[in-house]
Amino acid sequence: MTKLTLGSYPYLLGFDQLERLVERTAKSGNDGYPPFNIEQTSDHSFRITLAVAGFAEEDLTITVEDSQLNVRGAQQDADDDRVFLHRGIAARQFQKSFVLAEGVEVGAASMENGLLHVDLTRSVPETVVQTIQINKPRGA
């Protein structure tokens, strides 16, 4: 059986990048840590909220690279001599990646009660109608 790709459909021109984007997202290795929510805050805006209890603002890095939002967390090693009888609060490093569609921009980020909020907005593309003139062949 032949695998159908977006390039196999003659009316979907230029969508090969979308297929690569889906493959990249599937390979991003995102596990379930830290847990997160994505909510729609208006018709053209979203908020990603990550549960980052135990992380300080200095421990978190938010970057956008090649249409991908990356949130990384790495806690500084404490120099105290604490002895844990039980350690149930995760303190491991993480990287969470979100692929952004064209026109989606990252706005502000804020921390509140152990939750990291990242606001996104999507610009509404303007409808453009273009008329293409048909040229006569040379020498006709």
Rank of each mutant, 00 (worst) to 15 (best):
T2N: 09
A108R: 15
Q40L: 09
L21M: 15
T25R: 15
G103T: 01
I134W: 08
R138L: 10
G114W: 02
T127P: 03
A56T: 14
L50Y: 02
M1Y: 05
K136Q: 15
V22D: 04
L85Q: 14
V71E: 00
R92A: 13
S28M: 09
F15Q: 10
V129N: 14
G139E: 14
L50M: 03
L4R: 15
R72M: 06
R24T: 04
G139T: 07
V128R: 12
L120T: 01
D16S: 11
H117P: 00
Y9T: 09
T25Y: 12
G139N: 14
E23W: 05
S97G: 00
L115Y: 13
F46W: 15
R20Y: 06
G54R: 06
Q17I: 09
Q95I: 07
V104A: 07
Q68R: 14
A74M: 10
T63I: 08
D80W: 06
H44Q: 13
S45H: 01
V128G: 01
G107Q: 14
H86E: 14
A56I: 06
H86M: 10
F84P: 02
L4H: 14
V128Y: 05
Q76S: 14
L13I: 11
D59I: 01
I48V: 14
D77V: 11
F36Q: 06
D80M: 03
R47V: 07
T121M: 06
T127R: 11
A90M: 04
Q17S: 12
T127W: 05
E65G: 02
V124M: 10
R20P: 03
S42P: 01
D79S: 10
Y33D: 00
V52T: 07
F98V: 05
Q75Y: 02
R138E: 13
Q76C: 02
A53D: 15
L60N: 00
L60F: 03
V106H: 03
G29W: 06
R138F: 10
V22Y: 12
S28D: 11
A53K: 15
F98Y: 15
F36C: 02
T5E: 11
K96Q: 13
Q130H: 11
